[in-house]
């Protein structure tokens, strides 16, 4: 039996997918693109972006000897714009001689404890955020490029499972909001796709810079689920998954959020 219009539909479907392929078909948007023009401008302007104060503080710490070894980051690495360019774009990664990934803050603390023989910096402490912001800033505008390390695959899978699993009293998954309802309004807030490009981020609500983990923690608590420990394998796995999901998107840190 001949169905009139069937052929035309096929042509249209083909044309549509072809157009999508021509445009790259990439529907990903970063949180920056969802911000108001005023906030975008503030983030772009290095003199008005409050996150830059942390970058400046990070520069001081970078050059300051610390710990029993009395060495500065700069003593081993030199200038960030050469040695650290692209580094933030490929973390979390599995360090040499280790079997578990660390994120950039974890990597910074490995240098603190191992090379400088100093105490690890506390999560969300000003110094850790400042060093994170300074090193990440050296990758600003570079595309996120997770390492090809096959050992990361398992972690990424765990992250994806956590991202899609419903939890908490509200019985929601990350994917319910960030995959299925991104762009819609959750009360007053536009739900972002949840790409980690802008972190560490300056949030006016926090009145300070905050790490990606702090953001993830807020979302977990929003679902009325039990927050994970800051150094948990779960947050790390989510970070690994989010970086993979954002592969190719450009680093925007320090971003600004309301």
């Amino acid at each position: 039996m001949k169905r009139p219009g069937f052929g035309l539909t096929l042509v249209l479907v083909f044309a549509a997918s072809f157009a999508a392929a021509q445009g790259g078909g990439d529907k990903r948007r970063t949180g920056y693109q969802d911000m108001s023009a005023a906030l975008q401008q503030m983030a772009d302007d290095e003199t008005s972006n409050p996150g830059l104060l942390f970058v400046k503080a990070g520069e001081v710490l970078w050059k300051q000897p610390a710990g029993k070894a009395n060495k500065a980051c700069a003593d081993c690495h030199g200038a960030v714009d050469t040695s650290m360019k692209g580094v933030a774009a490929r973390y979390p990664a599995i360090p040499k001689d280790a079997d578990k990934p660390v994120d950039l803050e974890g990597r910074i603390n490995l240098c603190r404890t191992g090379q400088q023989q100093a105490e690890a910096l506390k999560p969300e402490s000003e110094d850790l955020l400042a060093l994170d912001a300074y090193v990440t800033h050296a990758s600003r505008s570079l595309p996120i490029a997770p390492p090809a390390d096959p050992r990361l695959a398992r972690v990424r899978e765990l992250g994806k499972a956590l991202f899609t699993r419903r939890e908490g009293q509200l019985n929601l998954s990350c994917a319910n909001c960030h995959d299925d309802n991104a762009g819609k309004k959750l009360a007053g807030a536009t739900i972002p796709q949840g790409h980690p490009t802008a972190y560490p981020v300056y949030r006016s609500e926090w009145q300070t810079l905050g790490s990606l983990k702090r953001r993830l923690r807020n979302c977990v608590i929003g679902m009325r689920a039990e927050a994970y420990a800051y150094d948990s394998a779960e947050y790390l796995a989510l970070e690994v998954y989010l970086m993979d999901r954002a592969k190719g998107l450009k680093i925007e840190s320090p971003g600004i959020r309301p």
Partner: peptide
């Protein structure tokens, strides 16, 4: 559905301690 279950206690995971055993 994404609408939360307002009066159900089973089939929930990792409910925050403050809300455990409580309906919304």
């Amino acid at each position: 559905t994404i609408m939360p279950p307002y009066y159900r206690l089973d089939r929930l995971q990792r409910v925050a301690r403050a809300y455990e055993g409580k309906t919304i």
